[in-house]
Design a protein around this nucleic acid. Sequence first.
DNA 1: GATGAATGAGTGTTCATTCAT
DNA 2: TATGAATGAACACTCATTCAT
Lengths: 194, 194, 194, 194
Amino acid sequence: MQDRPDDKYSRILNASIEVISEKGLEKSSVSEIVKKAGIAQGTFYLYFSSKSDLVPAIANSLLTKILDRMKRKVQGAESFWSTLDAVIDETFKVTDEHKDIIVLVYSGLAVKHSLEKWEEVYRPYYEWLEVEISKAVQKEEILPDINVKWTSRTIINLIENAAERYYIGGERDESLTVYKEELFKFIRKSLITD
Amino acid sequence: MQDRPDDKYSRILNASIEVISEKGLEKSSVSEIVKKAGIAQGTFYLYFSSKSDLVPAIANSLLTKILDRMKRKVQGAESFWSTLDAVIDETFKVTDEHKDIIVLVYSGLAVKHSLEKWEEVYRPYYEWLEVEISKAVQKEEILPDINVKWTSRTIINLIENAAERYYIGGERDESLTVYKEELFKFIRKSLITD
Amino acid sequence: MQDRPDDKYSRILNASIEVISEKGLEKSSVSEIVKKAGIAQGTFYLYFSSKSDLVPAIANSLLTKILDRMKRKVQGAESFWSTLDAVIDETFKVTDEHKDIIVLVYSGLAVKHSLEKWEEVYRPYYEWLEVEISKAVQKEEILPDINVKWTSRTIINLIENAAERYYIGGERDESLTVYKEELFKFIRKSLITD
Amino acid sequence: MQDRPDDKYSRILNASIEVISEKGLEKSSVSEIVKKAGIAQGTFYLYFSSKSDLVPAIANSLLTKILDRMKRKVQGAESFWSTLDAVIDETFKVTDEHKDIIVLVYSGLAVKHSLEKWEEVYRPYYEWLEVEISKAVQKEEILPDINVKWTSRTIINLIENAAERYYIGGERDESLTVYKEELFKFIRKSLITD
DNA sequence: GATGAATGAGTGTTCATTCAT
DNA sequence: TATGAATGAACACTCATTCAT
């Protein structure tokens, strides 16, 4: 429904991403968001039931964007290892580009009672990687004695954390290349060792 | 300063942990904290320069507590693998006990300009594990071709993330034991494979 | 206009009686009323010029209902005393059934500049009792040296107040029967004493 | 406590009487009240827990004032009849002077769940008249077969209603003197008839 | 007549912070 | 140091009303 990027819903969503990634949810005011979106104060509440309602919407929008990019990049990958490589690469890129939103989404969803939404939002991403891992198992690229579901989640979190530590936490003792290689090796070893 | 647990500083810190872990930083009021601490409104500002000043103090207090526990548990461990086992175990326990503070610290520190503090707070923990890893390399328990610093950080984050996914994110498809074993194997493989 | 109970006007009126007697005028919203009435927001303003326009309409509707009931009950009363008895009885019943609307009408009409409407709304009721009193005077049931107009208003208010004190104010020191008898005697004495 | 008329509590109370009697509770804003009281917005909430908290306070203040006046006027009255006369007189005067507050108190207390307060506020007044009536019974000025408690309440309401109808409802078919005489006679007859 | 999306003014209340004592 | 009364800016949310269709 919210396809055209200039319908009211999208106008609000985009404005809120701008504003909230700059200042955090609590410090952002609805009035600033609507001003930026060019709509009236009351109109906001026709599309979102409350300010905090924005966070899952933003998270969802980001995740959708990320997953699309992943899929596109990974298309025609020869092996699971080039898929993994692409996922690492893309995650670092996305993290760099969207630092602000990621931090926001983290802190926003990390609020009590919103945590269930986290899983919900991430699920498509998790499930996509599950499929890739399963295919790799079948092609005997990686060992079969792993828990696919658990491993999918763990890998995604591992990569995202590393990227966040690099770009957001300021942990830059190594070059980016070394950082990513280290990560690749770490995961690979875990998947091919008996 | 905060040695005696009933000096004003500690009274404020403990009260704020109680209040803030319950409701989050923004929803908590200084007035509620001082009421719980049994001091006057103005006294708060003799010990903390602002409300947001509390978060690093809380984070620090938690990390100190965690690191103490780790060290105690790991004392006299025969091999790196029993150390790793203990770290995993302890992390899960701590995460379970202190869900609320962890979420708070996450969301609190995740706000822009506070992220540098994160590294600072975690550093002693990271460094402690670095030492343990180095010892393991020397004892030839794990392979030498790893980046110790990077690996220390990665392992800690990996374990914490898994624990958070289990206790906070509600990802409980597997039993706790299986979950922890999976994690142990995942890390071990990465450290012993060439 | 409001004859058929399902034309738009009546639908709005009935919905607003439900909603407003529940929550009071200020706390009730037009949007809730129109939702209950099953019409569109804008349609409301085709029938009422504003929200506060509802109160006299509701008051009128209630008074009409009450007066109808009075007349029916009193039909064929042998003496003024049985009329008075019926009026007391009926007022108590109506007050009990419509506590909410009565309170609303009181507080709604009690706002400055709305008080003239009060007299207007009550007039038919007052006048009906004037006629009854006059007949009683002629039949020499009550003494002639009273001001009929004033007495009519006073009696109605006296009875209504007693009923309100009983049902709304919670003044229930006596049984309902005693209460009504006391009232009857009080009025009767005033009318037959020289 | 709120004796001196220029402590904060009294300043708020007096300002709110001015503002609210002019516009009604809902139409009055706290911001207007504090402006008139010459205090800061937040200070209001140190003395009243909410805007609606003002109504019982105002009612109480008015009733106290009324009761004081009654007692003073009635001091040294020779008979119950001169007491009654004074009560009628004073009620009409007070109603004239404080029309606005009376209307406000009516509409404000008439809101659901506030009605219990009504009785509470009026109780001292009711009880004072009960004592006067009892004395009159003992002095055999009025007949003993009445319910003192019920009669006290009824007389007060009767007089107040008549005064309100005269001053607020605009029912002025008769001169004020006639109006009050009529009332006196009506009550007197009820009290002396067997 | 009927609709309902859009408006934007309006408000009670909270709360971090200050400061005179 | 310690207090706590006073401050006043800030804000989410509501809702009566309008108007293009």
